[in-house]
Design a protein around this nucleic acid. Structure first.
Lengths: 232, 232
DNA sequence: TTATTAAATGTCATTTTGACAAATAATAAT
DNA sequence: ATTATTATTTGTCAAAATGACATTTAATAA
């Protein structure tokens, strides 16, 4: 086979910043690294890009391998390519952030796989430049969530408005006025009110809502401006 | 040196989608490819990532080499990594989009370098997946420019409101109401009106403005909502 | 029956937006 | 010198969106 002469070749990896929401706090899914160097240290879910797959394919593959999950919301963050970010040999890594409905998969996660959820603000020291990746991912999540309804990806099919608001508050690390928030959310027309109530949080109970899938897909690219007094 | 055993290694390149504005239309800077395959075909400005540089470094380097320009606005687009996107051997490419003040460098461009400007809508067939990169870059440019004042990067230090509006109209492929546009622009507080007028376009002449650099940097991350009836 | 507690909803003044047309400043023509 | 021309600049108003603020409601517990 012909080759481009004399050019250096590198390893290419993917790393996934996996976010979840437990109903109260934003969480981060981490694994213990399985190879040297830094074996058994906490790491993002990642792996090398194989010969017959794209980075996107690789990200989906390593997510499936480490969590059993398929069809996860996944978005390219950026490439991390400082020459010495990996001490062994040069490896460029494509960062992805992923959003997971934490409840849906909680059981199988802790059993079959040894990934663990951490509160984003209490996560352990990470290998290489993974802490930077997490910081970048949080920033991008805030940015994106202010304009597009991606946070629903972290909620179960049925959810309440107070839950939704808590998620927004967690992501943006801010308090939002209840009245203005529900007005804005309902003005998007993305939610369908259900008969059932969630009684776990209060005596009165909060009505469940579900996403209007059609409108969700149609409006995914539209600008919603969901965060008041937004300053990034 | 220790290596990760058995993992495939790839070439990593960068490709820059370079936009400019000639006062009327949005333009794209292309070069004739200098190596096989597809030698002498039109291509984005690109090159391989060297052993001691990051992709960001590489992008700046190839831009300097092909245009003589330094300090250009450059932003990572995404990675292009389909296994067979390069027919010779596997090469992943990091896409960047760049914004240039076309006038400032017009002379040196055409003389020293053989890069050429094309109207974005009349650009020639491009190699590999470069056409896709251009399409993605245009989309991201629209998106970004709707929220952040990046389009000023394509204008000379002194510019008029009608020029600015034309640029916005070009990027968004739409007509904007003059009155609402200037109201919105002036409400950003980013512009400083100069004494001088540009008499080239009309009898009355249009006042020159310049950017308030401090406010520009301070507000770069803020949301400006510059495009009416925005639908992406 | 009352107390408790979180959920849901309403009001109002201010700001922003979108749609629309008239006035202005400089030169060119008569 | 007056008028015509043409792009630039600016103004109005109704509608919608926003931010700040407190009360009512529904269910259970006391």
């Amino acid at each position: 086979m012909i080759e481009y002469s004399g050019q250096p070749h590198y390893l290419v990896a993917v790393d996934c910043i996996v976010f979840g929401f437990d109903g109260e706090h934003l969480k981060l899914l981490l694994v213990k690294r399985g190879l040297e160097p830094e074996i058994n240290k906490w790491s993002l879910i990642g792996g090398f890009v194989g010969a017959n797959e794209s980075p996107d394919d690789a990200a989906n593959r390593v997510l499936k391998k480490n969590t059993g999950l398929e069809g996860i919301y996944l978005e390219q963050l950026q490439i991390y390519g400082e020459p010495h970010r990996d001490p062994i040999e040069r490896t460029l890594s494509v960062g992805y952030f992923a959003l997971i409905d934490i409840h849906k998969y909680e059981a199988q996660l802790s059993d079959e796989y040894h990934a663990e959820w951490f509160l984003v603000n209490e996560s352990p020291k990470l290998i290489f430049d993974h802490a930077q990746m997490v910081a970048d991912a949080r920033k991008k999540l805030r940015y994106k969530a202010a304009l597009h309804p991606i946070l629903f990806e972290m909620l179960p099919k049925k959810f309440t408005i107070p839950q939704l608001q808590m998620l927004f508050e967690e992501v943006n690390d801010t308090k939002i006025d209840t009245r203005n928030f529900s007005r804005k959310i309902s003005s998007t027309g993305l939610l369908i009110k259900l008969e059932e109530k969630d009684k776990s949080g209060s005596k009165k109970g909060a009505f469940y809502f579900k996403l209007d899938k059609k409108k969700y897909k149609a409006n995914f690219q539209a600008f919603l401006n969901l965060i008041p007094n937004l300053k990034l």
